[in-house]
Design a protein around this nucleic acid. Structure first.
Lengths: 226, 226
DNA sequence: TTCATAATTCGATCGTAGTCGAAGCATTCC
DNA sequence: GGAATGCTTCGACTACGATCGAATTATGAA
């Protein structure tokens, strides 16, 4: 009768439109305050506060106090992966509330998925690393090869620091626009940070879009060929 | 504000405990009837029917009519992947429930489905006839070839008698233990009757189990190879 | 201190969705 | 043919949760 994990609780948390809007907003990767999230969801602050408490109790969000602000963010990578999976299915069903506008192609090209690169460029990144045998694919698992380690160290990324964290370095994440996997995990995060620090790309305010500069785009495509 | 796919609808569908129980049950891979699903969810048939209609409208389930039964199953692989992702997260939160026990192996091996053979042996029977080009598959329809007609007449089955009845001779029937089609229709019935009359197998009282004798099992496997 | 901003808590209202009994179809069994 | 089974539809009841106004707490600024 009752077997397996309890998905109803998680589902009901995501199932409320207001909460779903907040979670979608937080998929941008930035921590947001209750006031900002209330605006995203189109509800009052009181209601938002109640929702956020539930999401936190359910383990989907974490909260960080900072002065008189409280910053909410997705609790773990796993939350982002799960939401992306839901989005993938919803998108395949044609359940998109987003009116097809000019921002849509930009979103499909490159966007942030919690903390790593997604969209066409995100998929290309993983494909390129796999093609160069710098990442090995075993089923759904990814592993960095020796060549891969040297490669990212050459980019100036501290491999030992990545290894210290308990999070997996490489991880697949299903891309809802491309419907293929892109690179998540601490390496995925580090690479996106690297691109931004190098000035190749930057986050667009108030959305998940990642804008590549002209030179940044050229460098990215050259560095990660197919 | 509102970008990306609408995950709230999907979430709310999964969010109801009764529906979550049904989906969990269907993760087993077998197609189930509303009655069975109602039992899994601990609700009445009426309520289950309402839930199933919603899940189907949401694209999570598909339905297949079979006589006076309706078999529900997960609509696509993507649904399973999505649920798996949710379960993974729920499990990591420690939100686990009971563990499933092994079902009756004899039922899985061979049982009666109305009047024809089902289970592992039932699926094998159809597979073998198809492999020998004695039955042709066109989508969900089955057709007996000339070779097939000669084959069953050689077994002593009266083909003309089968043709006289209004019922289709060959028909697919979804096997709940194997989750694949087996052979139904008047031919399916005639074959099971044949096996029993030959003494190869007999029905077990008070259950749906079909017990093959030692010699019967040997003869069956030899006559219908894979 | 006093005021302003940020956020939570409380309480009341209101809709909606889950639930089941009863009735209505559809199909199969005898 | 009629009875039995499987399932859906309809209608009514109920309960839970989303929502917001008002009051409360907490932090920072003047």
């Amino acid at each position: 009768m009752k077997e397996g994990p309890d998905i109803a609780l998680i589902g009901s948390l995501i199932g409320d439109p207001a909460r779903a809007n907040m979670l979608t907003a937080l998929m941008g990767g930035q921590a947001l305050t209750p006031t900002e999230l209330a605006a995203h969801a189109g509800i009052t602050l009181q209601t938002a506060s109640s929702h956020l408490a539930k999401l936190e109790a359910g383990g989907l969000l974490t909260q960080r106090k900072q002065g008189r602000h409280r910053y909410y963010a997705l609790a773990e990578d796993e939350v982002g992966l799960m939401l992306e999976s839901l989005m993938g299915f919803a998108a395949s069903r044609g359940l998109t509330r987003h009116r097809p506008g000019p921002r849509d192609p930009a979103l499909r090209k490159a966007r942030v998925c919690y903390n790593h690169l997604a969209g066409d460029y995100g998929v290309r990144l993983l494909d390129s690393l796999v093609a160069a045998r710098q990442i090995e694919v075993t089923g759904e698992d990814l592993a960095l090869t020796d060549a891969g380690r040297h490669r990212i160290e050459a980019l100036g990324i501290d491999y030992d620091a990545l290894q210290k964290s308990r999070r997996p370095i490489c991880r697949t994440c299903l891309d809802w626009s491309e419907r293929r996997s892109h690179l998540a995990g601490s390496l995925g995060e580090a690479l996106l940070t690297h691109f931004i620090e190098e000035g190749w790309a930057k986050r667009e305010k108030g959305s998940r879009v990642i804008r590549f500069s002209h030179n940044g785009e050229r460098a990215f495509l050259e560095l990660f060929p197919l």
